[in-house]
């Protein structure tokens, strides 16, 4: 601090502690609610002294919400998206930065423009693609009247119908979300700051592009990758709209969506202790990842937006 301002300092800490408490309050309160009996949790106001029903509630919520399966699904989805996104983007960025080819600018622009097409603005048609991934190919095939052409050539009736549904599958949960403009940008920006000499030296030593990538670029990108792992894991785990659209089987749905079934509705028993216990449990994996990898997370968050 620049000068001594004891009164202001005092208020600073008071405000800061109030702020932290306000931000933390929903969680603390939910945790307390998760330890109460049904009777206590529906008292107004709910007692702020934790009860002793935590494990009983958790056990019940766990089995009623099928949380084991769903958290596992969320975890697999988040991991798949993280790994897929990073792999796809780092290779794409390597191609864009370190090679000169005819469609480089086009490729870069096409990746760039996906920034403007979040899944929320193309809900229905993306669902249709997921219901049949080969639909686009089929449409193009029909548009070109290839059936007729083949029939004409072979003299027989020829019809092709392609069908591959991603609904209710891990591929469907993961694949459409692995393309990312922001990750590709981050790697591109980073690659542009890598000294030219490294590449020259590698070439002089006769390294192939992939050797250069594996032995030099990949180790240099370690911190960027760590930062993206945190951000993309949180992103993947917290997805809502996409899993909601493409999963109908409760065994395939994710935890964040499954929680909805535990919220007491108007004419149910007000079992908020179960709902909140489950909510806290489900939010735990990404929160832990952020807390334990805070340093990389903050770095990644700020770098990514540049």
């Amino acid at each position: 601090m620049v000068e001594k301002t004891p009164i202001l300092d005092f208020f600073t800490y008071i405000f800061l502690i109030t702020g932290i408490l306000i931000v933390g309050f929903p969680i603390i309160y939910s945790l307390i609610a998760a330890t109460q009996t049904l009777e206590d949790v529906s008292r107004v106001p709910m007692p702020l002294v934790p009860g002793d029903q935590f494990f009983v509630n958790m056990k019940q919520a766990w089995s009623r919400g099928d949380l084991g399966t769903q958290i596992m699904n969320s975890f697999l989805m988040a991991t798949g998206i993280t790994v897929g996104k990073i792999a796809v983007s780092i290779l794409g960025a390597f191609s864009i930065v370190y090679f000169d080819y005819r469609f480089r600018a086009v490729a870069f622009a096409s990746v760039f423009c996906t920034l403007m097409l979040p899944v929320e603005v193309r809900i229905m048609p993306t669902y249709e693609v997921a219901a049949n991934v080969l639909g686009p190919v089929q449409s193009i095939w029909e548009f070109c009247h290839l059936n007729d052409i083949v029939s004409w050539f072979t003299g027989n009736d020829f019809e092709i119908s392609l069908n591959w549904s991603l609904l209710d599958s891990y591929t469907g949960l993961i694949l459409p979300l692995v393309a990312s403009a922001t990750c590709t940008f981050l790697f591109r920006q980073f690659f542009l700051t890598v000294p030219e000499e490294l590449c020259e030296a590698a070439k002089m030593d006769g390294a192939s592009p992939m050797t250069f990538f594996r032995k030099i670029l990949l180790p240099l990108s370690r911190t960027n990758i760590a930062a993206l792992v945190v951000i993309e894991f949180v992103y993947g785990y917290n997805q809502y709209l996409w899993p909601l659209l493409i999963t109908t089987n409760p065994k395939m749905t994710t935890a964040v969506i499954g929680l909805q079934n535990l919220i007491p509705q108007a004419d149910d028993l007000p079992e908020w202790n179960l709902a909140l216990g489950a909510a806290v449990l489900v939010m735990l994996p990404p929160v832990l990842v952020v807390l334990f990898m805070q340093r990389w997370f903050v770095k990644g968050l700020i770098e990514r937006e540049k």
Binding site: I27, N238, V256, I257, A279, V290
Partner: peptide
């Protein structure tokens, strides 16, 4: 709280 899903 950044890591908490909007739905939660």
């Amino acid at each position: 709280p950044y890591a908490v899903a909007p739905a939660i």
